[in-house]
Amino acid sequence: MSTDDAILRLDRINTQYGAVQVHFDLSLAVPRGSIVCLLGGNASGKSTTMKVILGLVAPRSGRVLLGGEPVTGLPTPKIVRRGVASVPESRRLFGAMTVRENVLMGAYTRGDRGAVREDYERVLDLFPRLRERERQHAGTLSGGEQQMVAMARALMARPRLIVMDEPTMGLSPRHVDAVLDLIATINRQGVSIFMVEQNAAHALSIAHHGYVLQTGRIVLSGGARDLLHDPQIRDAYLGGARAA
């Protein structure tokens, strides 16, 4: 198992909120070095998938494997220490802390101060806009800038995998392209990426592989290019009450 070629694998996950079941035998895999997206409409269970991976919600049954090792039931900080960084839904920055503090919070689990400082410079090179805003409170930034802070924060952990919840949501078209480019760039540097998205066109334009989630079940999966041309996709990501 430890030689799993997938950095992340969900194995028959069932999740429940009280009496409401969210996931039904959900299984998926993120191959090392790839971008995988999980598409789905509102209430399809996308965000809960993120929470299960990060240990914020415990599944009723099933396993979460990181590089072949089970992490199900571990507390979030432990999972983070195993190399998973996240870009949460609607950014979730620390609004009353400065941009610099926010980005450095990403390196919270690391002890190598010197390397952190170098990484910080490197990450800011990737987001030159943030260099001008270093001393500003993160809460005062525009949506696109906040998204950059969230991504920079995730990178600072030197993660093996970044999970992103709707990274393009609420961004202007210009920022959407910039963010997508950056995700592709980060991926080329060797970081695997798992993103959940509502906007299939955005996500599939950079992903290698995609899954479609509908009311808690995977209804379709395949190469990103194939999915992009699949007529069924439109039904699924628009909510898809009539399929399934």
Partner: peptide, 22 residues
Amino acid sequence: KLGWAVRATALDRDAAQQCGVD
């Protein structure tokens, strides 16, 4: 570092956890 973690936790508990804060 712990002081930063205190502030981060106060501002957004879940996000702090996702940065690895216990």
